[in-house]
């Protein structure tokens, strides 16, 4: 099976606190903080988007991978906020990191699952012998409508993975996917903000698919929650991944290292992939890790990784995700946030 050769995560420096957003809309901040377990979220600057964050995350991944980028045979960026409606993000990424011209490239979209979908496909191409290395990125600068519950969580970040046929830092033991047609969250063409189906996004959507995928994955490899050192689940807020983990029988300690959403927000396609990078940062050789993504619409990809000896040699070659999240940040007010996210109607 394929392995993760290098990994990296990037998030913008700006943060906005839940209180700052709640204040504007007269909402009850403590209930959001407690109910959704969200403190603050990342906000992209006007010069940051899915493409720029993908490039920076990939530079970190390449530092850890230590490979010649021209050996990358596939470049896939998964996002629901590709800067262009038509024109790939992946081509810019490939040019910027020097992976052109001999590579397959296409952009992926599957709500919050697009990043793991890119990883899944790269693993398949490596296993099938089609490519030597694949580059898979999950990145988003998602927008929630002003005042909507999603505005408290929609954040920006990217995770990048170099996937190859040697073991790398983490062997891919197996993968599994689970999906149905479930319209819980969507954004129509030309619409600026997504819509969601309220509480329907919970049980029949997130929980059904994450549970279905996690159980199917564990059954396929014959493992139980206690066999894993860590587990990473899609994190639309702070509460859902903890709750689904508990339902599956995982402990808080298994989930915590990759549980970034309370201070990062939901980075959509970057969400569980970024959680995985933070988990790699602390994992030891031999540790088993379960990752289950979720994308509305709906589906989940499951992965079982086994850390190798190489992790100790490469983890310090690029910034660690949790350290970057906690250290380099500035708080902005709602006015600045509205300006950065282009929520203010400008003169022609």
């Amino acid at each position: 099976m394929a392995g993760i050769i290098g990994y990296g995560a990037y998030m913008p420096r700006n943060r906005i606190k839940v209180e700052e957003i709640a204040k504007i809309w007269g909402a009850d901040a403590p209930s959001y903080k407690k109910g959704l377990m969200l403190q603050e979220k990342s906000v992209p600057s006007p010069d940051q988007d899915t493409i720029t964050m993908s490039v920076e995350a990939t530079k970190y991944a390449l530092k850890r991978a230590g490979i010649d980028p021209t050996r990358i045979g596939a470049v896939y960026v998964g996002s629901e906020s590709h800067p262009y409606a038509v024109k790939p993000s992946g081509t810019v990424l490939a040019e910027a990191v020097g992976a052109t011209p001999e590579a397959h490239c296409a952009d992926f979209e599957f709500a919050c699952k697009a990043g793991s979908a890119a990883m899944f496909v790269c693993m398949g191409l490596v296993d099938g012998g089609k490519i030597e290395y694949g580059l898979a990125v999950g990145a988003d600068t998602s927008q929630g409508a002003p005042g909507d519950a999603l505005e408290y969580s929609a954040a920006a970040g990217a995770a990048s993975f170099i996937i190859g046929k040697d073991d790398g830092v983490a062997k891919v033991i197996d993968t599994y996917s689970f999906m149905t047609d479930t319209p819980d969250f969507w954004r129509r063409s030309y619409m600026h903000y997504p819509r969601h189906a309220g509480r329907f996004t919970g049980e029949p959507a997130y929980f059904k698919h994450v549970l279905g995928c996690a159980n199917g994955m564990m059954e396929k490899v014959g493992m139980k929650p206690k066999d894993f050192a860590y587990a990473v689940f899609h994190q639309p807020n702070g509460k859902f991944p903890m709750r689904v983990g508990k339902m599956l029988g995982f402990t808080k300690e298994q989930i915590e290292p990759g549980w970034l959403s309370p201070t990062l927000g939901n980075t959509y396609s970057g969400s569980s992939p970024m959680g995985l990078t933070a988990t790699f940062d602390v994992a030891n050789p031999g540790d088993m890790i379960l990752m289950v993504s979720y994308g509305s619409g709906s589906g989940s990809d499951g992965f079982v990784y086994e850390m190798t000896d190489k992790i100790d040699a490469v983890r310090d070659l690029a910034p660690k995700t949790r350290e970057k999240l906690d250290s380099d940040k500035v708080y902005i007010d709602y006015g600045t946030y509205a300006k950065y996210r282009r929520k203010i109607r400008m003169g022609e």
């Binding site: 988007d49 493409i51 490039v55 920076e56 910027a96």
Partner: peptide, 25 residues
Amino acid sequence: IEFRRIREEGEAGILCYGYKFVPVR
């Protein structure tokens, strides 16, 4: 050096990327 969006050619034109400096912290 970080990779950033430098400018855009109006609402419908191409997005123009490139390098910016960021402090080493």
